[in-house]
Nucleic acid binder design. Structure first.
Length: 917
RNA sequence: GGGCGGUUAGCUCAGCUGGUUAGAGCGUCUGCCUUACAAGCAGAAGGUCAUCCGUUCGAUCCGGAUACCGCCCACCA
């Protein structure tokens, strides 16, 4: 039977097939064996605003690696998937879509985007909520589908039967429940405060949604004349247009310059309003003129000053950032036009003292980059201090472990300085606040169901609130609402608290902190026990990927081209905790080569399988069948073990253990590197080459050669170790291996070490010595220019046991080193050239044309110098009495051993140089 | 204004709690289409671990300073 297997692995045919099959089989529902540990993670729900980017792919790869790893250790694993409605984000995208439909002729670009946004907003208002929300839902269906396809293609092992969306009816019920309960407890309140207002989006946004940017601006110094008298106060401002809303000037009470001014009044220029001069500690006498204009309706600090001094607020800027009626002659002007006009007028009136350049930080809208306007506005807020307290405690006490640890401090600092959270948004897409107003008596009703009439004055109907909740309000409930809360479901009982959460740092405060607060509040327990913060995926030059820079790599593109497994591996092996990832196509390419390597190793085995008779193949299948209750053990077959077998199984044991340790601490790069190196450079380069003759030979009789059992077991174990990183290719190859009874997937076959097994240091050492001999021979061949030929060689050593070891593996040494014959003898080689000296053996490759004495001398000279340097260092160390007395014994002994090896080697090199002469 | 991170081979990065000879991938050079794999095999070159000072028997690793780069937070008009 000859099996035709392509030489080059083609992920595009194999990967999608398995990905689909896993979904169709509902393979990744958690098992319900109560005796087993459970492991649960709820996905950070991607926004339904579009398709997934490299950051998602990294996140999902990391999650999937851990999920598969836990699953293969026999745990009941739940990875719960879902998506977030992304209130403001989705609404903006749908608006833009509407705009694009209305203005299809525009060339795509930043200008078109903003034009489409404006037009879409207009069309949204025209359509009304009902129709607009229909469009949003349609968008959600499409976009959600795209996301799901992408995740499936990635091989994400989530339980799709538990897929959730933040606006599912059940989920929305949880959102309202939380709102009502928090309101009833006084933790949600309504009030008129300064909020961050985005004039473009037409909504309030939270502090976190404001991005501070350093901009070059100006500082204007303006005179405010005293009422009915001589003189003036001068104030400095970066926003002269807001003076129209000034209701006071404030100075520091300790500032002698202004002591007399406090209590007097000044005349606000342009509007001629008479306003008081007040004393307030907030004012820094050092800054500007030491006198501050107070604009309570358009500045958060001024608002606080006004509270303290009972000053009124005058709103001069409207929600669209135009001047209001209160701005008198400037009404209707845009805020920036008003600024110019105001400055112009002040200059003409001689009230402008000076203009200086000034770098200031302005708040911009996270979504649309528009400069945010602090605005006095009635909004809903969540009181954070009482919620933050337990959320701080659980992290301090280690009930939630944050990794890498430096984020713990950042989290705690932020939580300690937390401010109340503005949760209402003037948007349409999202959860409407469960609030009704009685226009008759002014009553505010917060209820789970629509109230029929006002509970106070009985009038009806009530006017429903139109604001929706900040997206992060609903996602804050994610870990318990997805599991069925407020109902006491089986899932909630079984899977809360979840075990792990993985997210990017950018949403630690938006989401992570809020989940912890709300989880503690409503479940009285942490939402997850560990929180791993992953790195950012950047481009090869470590630049942020962005559309404007044009350096965005689309996960789907690169996946299609090189295969999911290759991309996953490239991400995993770069994912060192705490360091951003420089991602490049080159990297993916080199891990595609790795996938191909795995494929070809499998191909070698499968091709030679044809040399086994049917019964022998069945026997092999038996030896690969998982042991019930234990799963697959990465141990050698019970039969004869060659040196190479002992070595590779010993290494396998070590590598498995090390990978387990790495994954337990989120050191993905380490685990990926370990298996990469093990599989390629140990299994393929050495083990497979070593046993090759035993595998390619046609066995005689009905006995299955031990080499077959061992190789198949090593390969199968390697597939298991690789599987979390490269699930698709490993699944494919696993299915092609013979097996007595085949489960549905490698990922459901438990794989673990039998405890107490220790690695075999003696065999490792012996194997490495033989390896050393072979490499030395190859090296000698290469430098003598004999790579094409098969020369003879001579090996000598003082160590009889070593010679015995070499003799026992003579055939393998000849084959792997590419030698014709080798002669082993005791002692040293008496040759006059071409001798390689290692501490424990000499080796000489025969060269027909004789040795190039010059090159030989140069090489030896270089070696001598290197040895001298090292020897000097080691000697120095050993002669240091402090080192001998203070360093640990085994370190000293190690250095001593090194010294004896070095001197031996050095003497041999010296000797060789002498013989050349 | 506070806080944090980085600086290791030509490039991108590993190197966990200090200890024998600092590692990979890509790139470079040499030789090979050796019946698993040229997306491969074999061999090689390439590093005063940013700089300075300190702690230590011993520092790429710990502490301090400097330089450059980057990030986060913040209610100074």
């Amino acid at each position: 039977m000859e099996v035709e297997i392509p030489k080059v692995y083609s992920p595009e045919t194999i990967e999608p097939r398995w990905a689909r099959q896993w979904v169709e089989m509902n393979l990744y529902r958690p098992g319900d064996d109560a005796a087993r540990r459970r492991f649960c993670l709820v996905i950070p729900p991607p926004n339904v605003t579009g398709s997934l980017h490299m950051g998602h792919m990294l996140e999902h790869t990391e999650i999937d690696i851990l999920m598969r790893w836990h699953r293969m250790r026999g745990e009941n694993v739940l990875w719960l998937p879902g998506t977030d409605h992304a209130s403001i984000g989705t609404q903006m995208i749908v608006e833009r879509e509407l705009g694009r439909e209305a203005l299809p002729h525009l060339e795509p670009g930043p200008e078109a985007l903003s034009a489409w946004g404006r037009e879409g907003q207009r069309r949204r208002r025209e359509m009304g909520p009902e129709k607009f929300l229909e469009r949003c839902w349609k968008w959600k269906e499409e976009s959600g589908g795209t996301i799901r396809n992408q995740m499936e293609r990635l091989g994400a092992s989530c339980d799709w039967t538990r897929d959730r969306f933040t606006m599912d009816p059940a989920y929305s019920r949880a959102v309202l429940e939380v709102f009502v309960r928090l309101y009833e407890e006084g933790l949600i309140y309504r009030g008129k405060y300064i909020v961050n207002w985005c004039p473009r989006c037409g909504t309030a946004v939270s502090d976190l949604e404001v991005i501070h940017e350093e901009r070059q601006g100006k500082l204007w110094t303006i005179r405010y004349p005293f009422e009915g008298g001589e003189g003036h106060l001068t104030v400095a401002t970066t926003r002269p247009e807001t003076m129209l809303g000034d209701t006071a000037v404030a100075v520091n009470p300790a500032d002698d310059r202004y002591r007399a001014a406090v209590g007097r009044k000044v005349v606000l220029p342009l509007l001629k309003r008479v306003i008081p001069v007040v004393a307030d500690d907030f004012v820094d006498p050092e800054f500007g003129t030491g006198a501050v204009k107070v604009t309570p309706a358009h500045d958060a600090n001024d608002f606080d000053i006004a509270e303290r001094h009972k000053l009124p607020g005058v709103v001069v800027i409207d929600p669209e950032a135009r001047m209001t009626e209160e701005a008198g002659p400037y009404r209707g002007l845009d805020r920036y036009a008003a600024r110019e006009a105001v400055v112009q007028e002040l200059r003409e009136q001689g009230l402008l003292e000076k203009i200086e350049d000034y770098a200031l930080s302005v708040g911009t809208c996270q979504r649309c980059k528009t400069v945010v306007e602090p605005l006095l506005s009635t909004q809903w807020f969540m009181r954070m201090k009482p919620l933050a307290e337990p959320a701080i405690r659980v992290v301090e006490e280690g009930r939630i472990r944050i990794v890498p640890e430096n984020y713990r401090k950042i989290y705690l600092d932020w939580m300690a300085n937390i401010h109340d959270w503005c949760i209402s948004r003037q948007l349409w897409w999202g959860h409407r606040l469960p609030v009704w107003y009685c226009d008759a008596c002014g009553e505010v009703v917060v209820a789970r169901e629509t109230p029929a009439a006002c509970p106070k004055c009985k009038s009806a109907p009530l006017r429903a609130e139109t604001d929706v909740l900040d997206t992060w309000f609903s996602s804050g409930l994610w870990p318990f609402a997805t599991l069925g809360w407020p109902d006491e479901t089986e899932d909630l009982r079984r899977f809360y608290p979840t075990d792990l959460m993985i997210m990017g740092f950018d949403i630690l405060f938006f989401w992570g902190a809020r989940m912890i607060m709300l989880g503690m509040k409503f479940m009285n327990d942490v939402p997850f026990r560990e929180l791993y913060i992953h790195a950012l995926v950047r481009d090869a030059e470590k630049q942020k990927m962005s559309k404007t820079k044009g350096n965005v790599i689309d996960p789907l593109d690169v996946t299609e081209k090189f295969g999911t497994d290759a991309v996953r591996f490239a991400l995993a092996i770069s994912a060192a905790p705490g360091t951003d990832i420089a991602f490049s196509i080159d990297k993916v390419e080199s891990y595609r080569a790795f996938a191909n390597k795995i494929w070809n190793a499998g191909r070698f085995i499968l091709m030679n399988l044809g040399k086994l008779s049917e019964p022998l193949r069945a026997k092999l299948g038996q030896s690969l069948t998982p042991i019930p209750g234990v799963g697959f053990e990465p141990v050698a077959g019970p039969e004869h073990l060659e040196l190479a077998d002992k070595w590779i199984f010993s290494r396998l044991l070590t590598v498995t253990r090390e990978m387990n340790e790495s994954l337990a601490s989120f050191r993905f790069h380490e685990a990926a590197f370990k298996i990469y190196h093990f599989f390629w450079h140990e299994v393929c380069d050495w083990y497979l080459e070593w046993v090759k003759p035993d595998i390619t030979a046609v066995p005689e009789g009905d006995k299955l050669p031990a080499a077959w059992v061992n190789l198949a077991r090593v390969f199968e174990a390697s597939l298991h170790l690789l599987h979390p990183f490269m699930p698709l290719i490993t699944e494919e190859l696993w299915h092609q291996l013979p097996r007595e009874s085949r489960g549905p997937s490698i990922s459901l076959t438990a794989f673990d070490l039998v405890s107490g097994r220790v690695s075999d240091g003696v065999s490792e050492k012996q194997f490495e010595t033989v390896e050393d001999l072979i490499v030395t021979a190859r090296n000698a061949k290469a430098e003598a220019g004999l790579q094409k030929q098969k020369p003879s060689a001579q090996v000598a050593s003082e160590d009889l046991r070593l010679l015995e070891l070499f003799r026992a593996h003579q055939a393998t040494i000849l084959r792997l080193a590419g030698l014709q014959a080798v002669n082993f003898s005791r002692g040293r080689l008496p040759s006059t050239g071409g001798v390689r000296v290692a501490p424990s053996f000499d080796l000489r490759v025969f060269h027909e044309e004789g040795v190039d004495q010059g090159a030989e001398r140069a090489r030896l000279q270089k070696e001598k110098e290197k040895l001298e340097r090292e020897l000097a260092r080691v000697k120095n160390q050993l002669e240091n009495e402090d080192f001998r007395t203070r360093a640990p014994r085994d370190v000293v002994r190690g250095v001593e051993h090194r010294h004896s090896q070095l001197s031996l080697h050095y003497r041999k090199v010296l000797d060789s140089i002498e013989r050349l002469d």
